[in-house]
Write a protein that binds this DNA or RNA. Structure first.
Length: 686
RNA sequence: GGCGGGGUAGCUCAGGUGGUUAGAGCGUCGGAUUCAUAACCCGAAGGUCACGGGUUCAACUCCCGUCCCCGCUACCA
């Protein structure tokens, strides 16, 4: 590998993770991926680099088909809805994709199928035949989620093929008792099916050389460490196809009802989107993906590291004609007011809602999310922080400096830029330091240190404020008006510089500044030019760049979240009731009172506790997942409810007889049920 | 439990091939000022650099162990 630090690239291919089209965009997505990617791309464009910024909706996969069934609509309608919402909110927020495509587009199907075919023809895949459930009426293989049946652990009758929602156990479809297809309601039959696997292990050597050797120093520790961990653990073959009818069809004979696994087709979406863009703009997409002089960078969140650092590169490498990413600057996660962002619990700040509630404040959110981006570790977003950063930084430092300079210009010179006359050392030094900013900020951006870059940009505004305060033109105007001309000129040059250098971070604000200054400059190096505004140039009337965000506005948002939290905690969010049963069904359960005699943690597990209970008639061993909620020492002597006739099952090599009954709230907190008065072990609960 | 990342001022974070008084922004306190959206500017207080050992003339920086947070993974009523 060549030395990346000195390597000159001819062009840049920048991708931002494809958002999954089953929900809107929230601040976590933005801080982790889209804001940094957009800053990076805008900067490169201003440097005059050849760059294409790629994104689109990821629209395949089982979750979308399930959402469609739940909403009694089609997968296409589900993705249409979210694709439109996402695309529009990105546009309004100023994420400057060159193309925002989607994986349901024909060009994507064609591209993804083509890459699959090439790999297939090169005998890259392993072909395996397995038996899976098949719905004869609908003539299709059933995804795990499309099979329900009785859970072998808890007896719940509507367990899914991958998980029982009653007891939480992960299952495979063949575990289910009385399996049923949710499509037809019929009993599915076992049928042979063929699938293709990508043998990742075959590429271990290439991955070691490429990542562990040649990117030791320029990839982020979290990314590098995660990759090393995966490679060292040994890479297993991964199925690239599955039986489903929503997705990219296989370009092979006799493969009806088979599509590419979503993880295989999704990253190819970057390539398809590039092709779409190239068609529209008359460019050659291949240069951006196949010429070693192109620098490919993937912006993603940490959950996506393995796909972008291991799997997709292996695909591209195996295909043979593609370049590999130069860097994958994955960010950590953003929390919201101390809790993990959660779509299902509605614990999120949605981009489209923010823009409704705070119209015209895109840059405020961009600023906050960049300044508090989870670059090295998870970080917390709070509304108070947004308010403080708006009021004390954007407004007080940047907005204020520009405003006071422009107000003085109008006051003293009727909006005409004064000339520099006999500048002092301090003036010259100030002008000199302006010239350093594009380099310093740019360096940080190129190293993906966006927080630091942003903070440097703000330092230029701080420099301006200090310069004005130290020189006090409002005093000098009486005694030494000539000197004031120089001061205002220098301050204006700083404003002009800011209007350029703030642009990648705060594009809306930068534009406003340029319009007030009556200039139009888009080249990064212009940010270091100190005679930007020639004497006599007329500037426009100043308007405020930022407005104060008052407490009530913030309180409203906090209250909304408190309400959400309360709903989540107080059981207002009910777990739906199960279907009615007959008394005989209940009668099948044999629930008893028992006393815990012994308890110990099962070694090498996080949740499991091994208990010996006394049921009156004898003692039984039970393995129970309560170790995170109770200490073993506190267990002996406890009266518990025991489901006695659950079939024994080996857990971690220990045979478990029956299960303990617990109450669980929405946060997953578990508590025991205890008889109200003392009663003999073995007593029947009914 | 295994693997990876992180634990530095009230908050959000920098830092270091080990070496004088550990840095920034915000917050707090004090001062100064009025061109400016009570903003700006100056100054101060505030840290046993998670904890315990070790290596060293010297460790926050290297090594070992422990604890806590996050993720992946295993396993779970």
């Amino acid at each position: 590998m060549t030395n990346r630090n000195t390597r000159k690239y001819k062009r840049h291919t920048v991708t931002a993770a494809l958002p999954y089209a089953n929900g809107p965009i929230h601040i976590g997505h933005l801080a982790g991926v889209y804001v940094p990617a957009d800053i990076y791309t805008r900067y490169l464009r201003m440097k005059g680099e050849d760059v294409v910024f790629i994104c689109g909706s990821d629209e395949h996969g089982v979750p979308i088909t399930i959402k469609a069934r739940q909403e009694r609509t089609t997968p296409q309608q589900v993705v249409d809805k979210y694709h439109t919402l996402i695309k529009e909110s990105f546009r309004e927020f100023g994420i400057s994709f060159d193309v925002y495509s989607r994986t349901s587009a024909p060009i994507h199907h064609e591209t993804a199928a083509g890459i699959f075919k090439t790999l297939y023809d090169k005998n890259v895949f392993i072909e395996k035949e397995t038996e899976q459930y098949f719905d004869e009426e609908n003539r299709q293989f059933l995804a795990d989620r499309y099979i329900t049946g009785t859970c072998p652990h808890c007896g719940y009758e509507k367990a899914y093929g991958d998980q029982c929602e009653n007891c939480g156990t992960s299952l495979s479809p063949t575990d289910l008792i009385n399996p049923k297809s949710t499509l037809s309601g019929n009993k599915p039959v076992m049928k042979k099916t063929r699938h293709w696997y990508l043998p990742l292990g075959n590429y271990e050597g290439m991955l070691r050389d490429w990542i562990l050797e040649s990117h030791k120093d320029d990839w982020k520790p979290n990314v590098y460490g995660q990759c090393k961990s995966w490679i060292d653990q040994g890479l297993q073959p991964r199925a690239v196809t599955r039986d489903l009818d929503w997705g990219v069809k296989l370009p092979l004979e006799n493969t009806e009802g088979k599509v590419l696994y979503v993880w295989f087709d999704a990253p190819i979406g970057y390539i398809s989107a590039t092709r779409e863009w190239a068609l529209e703009t008359g460019n050659d997409w291949k240069k951006y993906w196949q010429d070693p002089d192109s620098k490919l960078v993937h912006f993603i969140g940490k959950d996506n590291i393995v796909f972008h650092c291991i799997i997709f590169p292996v695909m591209l490498h195996a295909e043979g004609s593609y370049i590999l990413p130069d860097n994958v600057p994955a960010n950590e996660f953003l929390n919201l007011e101390g809790d993990k962002i959660s779509t299902s619990r509605n614990w999120a700040v949605w981009l489209h809602s923010f823009m409704e509630d705070f119209p015209g404040k895109q840059d405020v959110l961009r600023y906050v999310l960049c300044a508090a981006a989870p670059e090295a570790k998870d970080n917390d977003f709070t509304w108070k922080d947004l308010q403080a950063r708006n009021n004390n930084e954007l407004l007080a430092v940047l907005g204020n400096f520009v405003n006071r300079t422009l107000v003085l210009t109008h006051k003293y010179y009727d909006g005409k830029v004064p000339e520099i006359i006999d500048p002092s050392d301090a003036d010259l030094k100030t002008l000199e330091s302006i010239r350093e900013f594009p380099g310093v900020i740019g360096d940080n951006i190129e190293k993906y240190r966006f927080r630091e870059a942003l903070s440097q940009m703000m330092n230029l505004a701080r420099l301006g404020n200090r310069y004005l305060t130290e020189n006090e033109p409002w005093k000098l105007i009486k005694e030494n008006p000539e000197k004031v001309k120089t001061i205002i000129n220098v301050s204006l040059q700083i404003c002009a510089s800011l209007s350029v250098l703030s642009s990648p971070f705060l594009p809306f604000t930068a534009k406003k500044m340029q319009s007030m200054l009556n200039i139009h400059r888009e080249t990064w190096q212009d940010g270091g030019v100190t005679n930007f505004l020639p004497p006599g140039h007329t500037i426009n009337k100043p308007e405020l760049l930022f407005e104060k965000i008052e407490d009530p506005q913030i309180q409203e948002q906090i209250d909304r979240l408190l309400q959400t939290r309360q709903n989540n905690n107080s059981g207002n969010q009910y777990v739906p009731y199960k279907d009615p049963i007959d008394f005989e069904d209940f009668g099948k359960l044999d629930i008893r009172i028992a006393t815990v005699r012994q308890a110990e943690k099962v070694p090498k597990t996080k949740k499991l506790m091994k208990l010996i209970i006394d049921a009156g008639s004898g003692e039984y061993t039970i393995v129970s997942g309560i170790a995170e909620h109770y200490q073993p020492e506190t267990m002996t002597g406890r009266k518990v409810l025991w489901l006695a006739n659950l079939k024994p099952r080996k857990i971690k090599g220990i045979e478990s007889h029956g299960m303990l009954l617990m109450a669980e709230n929405n946060d997953g907190k578990l508590v025991f049920l205890t008889p109200e008065k003392d009663i003999e072990d073995g007593s029947v609960v009914s």
